[in-house]
Design a protein around this nucleic acid. Structure first.
Lengths: 95, 95
DNA sequence: GCGTCCAATGCTGTTTCGGTATGGCCGCCG
DNA sequence: CGGCGGCCATACCGAAACAGCATTGGACGC
């Protein structure tokens, strides 16, 4: 199917919002190299460049902007899914 | 945040639809043990039991049914995201 | 009670992943 | 023009995660 992972999506959103790989890495409690690789991997998986590398950071390309909307929705949906299940069962028995 | 992975969601949906871990494994081109672990991991991550283990397979519990709706939506959304990006760039396949 | 069916677990080789160190690119400052 | 600094990409390595094989454990049918 695809090899996209939620981690990649989180990385992508963070970089898109921060505009810098290094800065996004801080936010995700990671270091810059693996995060840089996440973006490269994502671009490779999608077969398209998502960012334009400028000397001052990462700038979203049209494809990246389109993908960002989906990425955010996916992450929000996962969050909702988790909360829903916890809700159905009574938010963890015993607590 | 969470440790849910798209692989786990795919595994969950497959098991939910097939009703058997072994059968779902076939569908996913995996073997039964790792798939079984995916479900256990997912249940652990969510803090709730998603399936009832019957002697004839796996039956969805209420929490599982609720989660299934979200899981399907998430996977569909990822699929849409991938296709969207490919579309934006002009579906660069042949190159 | 034994065989059968299905999921769970122990163990292990392999792959993936993150971290450290380093390189390449380009503008800024002198 | 030449050295410095900011930023992302790459090389390499040790650790964690993963898939698969073999096996166990529980429940029903004969």
């Amino acid at each position: 199917m695809w090899s996209v992972s939620l981690t990649h999506l989180q990385s992508f959103v963070a970089v898109a919002e921060e505009g810098h790989v290094g800065r996004a890495a801080r936010r995700l409690h990671l270091t810059q190299p693996p995060l840089s690789r996440h973006i490269l991997a994502l671009e490779d998986e999608l077969g398209a460049r998502l960012f334009e590398r400028t000397r001052s950071g990462m700038r979203l390309l049209p494809a990246g902007e389109a993908f960002l909307l989906h990425a955010r929705r996916i992450l929000a949906e996962v969050d909702a899914a988790v909360h829903t299940v916890r809700g159905v069962t009574g938010t963890r028995s015993g607590g």
